[in-house]
Design a protein around this nucleic acid. Sequence first.
DNA 1: TAGGCGTGGGA
DNA 2: TTCCCAAGCCT
Length: 394
Amino acid sequence: MSAVAEKAIVGKAVRGKTPAGKAVPTHRQPQLPLRPAGAETVRELLAWYDAERRHLPWRYAPRRKADPYRVWLSEIMLQQTTVKAVIPYFQKFVALWPTVTALAAASQDDVLQQWAGLGYYSRARNLKACADAIVRDFGGVFPSNEKDLRTLPGIGPYTAAAIAAIAFGVRATPVDGNIERVVSRLFAVRQALPKSKPEISRLAATLTPTRRPGDYAQAMMDLGAQVCTPKKPSCLMCPLQQDCAANAQGIAELLPLKAAKTARPTRFGLAYLVLREDGAVLLRRRPNSGLLGGMLEVPSSPWGDTPPIAKDATRSAPVSASWWQVPGDVVHVFTHFRLQCVVHRALVPVDVALTFWADQERCQWVHRRDLNAAGLPSVMRKLVAHGLQDAAFK
DNA sequence: TAGGCGTGGGA
DNA sequence: TTCCCAAGCCT
């Protein structure tokens, strides 16, 4: 076993997730006749895809080219996001903005409002910036090659290759998490991610066909999502079983190996729910970069590594008022930390003045009945819901 | 290069 | 409860 693989497994074992007996067998020989993955593998894969592919709103029939705008929009939404979560957002966006030109004509705030709840909000900011660039620099027409696509905001190596292959039929090789897993198993790659990425990309590219490269990519992704799954892969139903080195060695479910992850810290915050007598709630626009960039928030203290001191609560409040601490706290889990938040609430008159540190320029009052449509990130919806419990309203 | 960057569902 | 995961990108 390589040092990297060893480290990865040890790392997981230390965290108690992988029983010691689950280490990847090192010298085990293939038990089944193995046909190295190649052109015949791709033929089997495409035949499987023609019969078993998922029917998704952004897809066209096999062998047909799709609308680049819809391919692009779906690929951005699907970054680190499940198909199920994306579908309603995709439908909403193409209904509101059917073309890239229409999207470019929208404001960033409108795009963020519609994106609210889907997460990774830099995608929405880049989506708008990308639409602008395509209208401004490419005459409203998506470029068809990876190099030009890579220059656009929010389009990285994966998305550029996916658009080129799926929308334009270019022989490009997108490699996402699904394809990494499928290729890792097909070729029994024993090096751990992410170090193995270059080798996996190289191997994936050896399979990319000249004809139907987009269907090849989507077929690999569908196979990864439906058959070659992270846990309990359905090897017996896999059209590539006889080409799969990991299956032959009995190690399919153990691959791909991954480097150990770091623990997730807890941060603490204090949110202020300012309730005006006319039923409006005070919200604030966050800075355009960083966590929840550009999104609306409940005015809050900075999030720190220690729980807030009770007596500090009213001192840093956005308005001078009689504050009440709402019982219980709100917990929300982000990618890299866990947020634990206490909510304070106050009822204030309509002519209340904001304190100077409330950042008035970024503040706005939104009536309770309009909160659902306001486009709040999920964590802020939680804070509002928690803070409004038992609140009497007009 | 590794960490920042959301969310909700499932084991 | 806790962890992992889902069509990555940016710095």
